[in-house]
């Protein structure tokens, strides 16, 4: 069988910002003719800030022995080894920070006639298709950080565990529009179990 051109990089269609080279669509796993809607660019700030806070928190959690050893309070401690865990946290944090914009640009959703598609992931990409009729309920949640940026998270729940889809970083107006539309479509196509 000839190899498909599946792995050729495909530039993101319409929805991407100009000059954005992050492939939003992956022809290999996307359904035909799909146009993805990206989440708000402000979501990058939310992700970066929460990564920052998370990294600082974990630095404090794993870094205090190194601080004790470095300031001489804990004499004779193997400072070199104690520095390893905070260094690892720092590396992970910095990488996450650097990747955050691309990760956010890799999140997309699309509404079709009968189902909603949600995709995410840069390295490990995943496209989830949820028929409207299968939705049990739709959640819109806003964290304090998201509120500052006027964003919200839309969550869809079905009776299955694997298909709880999350669209983070949606602007408030869009979030309520999505919720209303999903609920309406869900009722029209209700399938239960």
């Amino acid at each position: 069988m000839p190899e498909r051109s599946a792995n050729d990089p495909v530039p993101g269609p319409a929805a991407g910002t100009p000059g954005d080279r992050t492939p939003l669509s992956n022809r290999a796993i996307d359904p035909e003719g799909i146009v993805w809607t990206r989440v708000s660019p402000r979501h990058v700030s939310v992700v970066m800030l929460s990564t920052l806070f998370g990294t600082l928190f974990w630095l404090a959690v794993v870094g205090w022995p190194a601080v004790l050893a470095g300031t001489g309070v804990w004499g004779g401690a193997p400072l070199r080894w104690l520095l390893l865990p905070p260094a690892a946290v720092l590396v992970v944090g910095v990488v996450s920070l650097l990747l955050a914009p691309r990760r956010v640009r890799a999140i997309g959703y699309a509404e079709r006639g009968e189902d909603l598609l949600v995709r995410r992931g840069l390295l490990y990409q995943r496209v989830l298709v949820i028929p409207y009729g299968r939705m049990q309920y739709v959640d819109v949640s806003v964290s304090p950080l998201q509120r500052t940026f006027g964003l919200a998270t839309v969550k869809l729940h079905t009776a299955a565990v694997g298909s709880h889809a999350e669209i983070p970083g949606v602007e408030h107006a869009e979030a309520s529009r999505l919720r209303e539309r999903l609920t309406a479509r869900g009722q029209a196509l209700l399938a239960g179990l």
Partner: peptide
């Protein structure tokens, strides 16, 4: 079928493969 997911990791992308999950209760 509750929902369907297709996913692909970097090695799979290189080989032109993908995983499919079909969600049930």
């Amino acid at each position: 079928t509750q929902s369907v997911a297709v996913s692909q990791g970097p090695l799979e992308r290189a080989l032109g493969l993908a995983d499919v999950e079909l969600h049930s209760t």
